[in-house]
Amino acid sequence: MGCNENGADREKYAELDQFIASLPTTKGELIRVLHRAQGIFGYLPKEVQVYVAKKLDLPVSKVYGVVSFYSFFTMKPKGKYDVSVCLGTACYVRGADKILEALTKKLGIGVGDTTEDAKFSLRTLRCVGACGLAPVVMINNKVYGRVTPDMVEGIIAECE
């Protein structure tokens, strides 16, 4: 299914067009444009990458090369609740691996995946800078600190 079929998508593309038009130059602005595109679409599917390539007059391969290089860019849609487990060193030595294990079990998905009902996605990230609260889980922009495997059930239930 294409991403540019319905009206909602047309609006999103228009918003992206507007942003690109507002840049004084497009030279070297690929990453800035991709940040914005991900902000608008939530992720960067193939259609959006092809579109960006065309707008910036770049080969699609170059756009894909950049999207796949940086961990911040994702080609899969995220769930309504984007669950990230910090695997920075401070969280690691305070048992982040056990938290991740409990979350994969609870949600029934692997790292980088989204549940079928599109409610939850699971990611890992490196250091959110809240090492005092290690181990840390972030759901959308909310940080849960000093998490234990027993707390996972409650944290997920809070979202549901």
Partner: peptide, 25 residues
């Protein structure tokens, strides 16, 4: 301001500069 997109290697200055130019870092 220019935004990084999550790549540890971009702390290396030549990689950082490539990233600033919109390339792979």
């Amino acid at each position: 301001l220019m935004f990084g997109a999550g790549a540890f290697v971009c702390g290396e200055e030549t990689a950082l500069i490539h990233s600033m130019e919109g390339q792979r870092g």
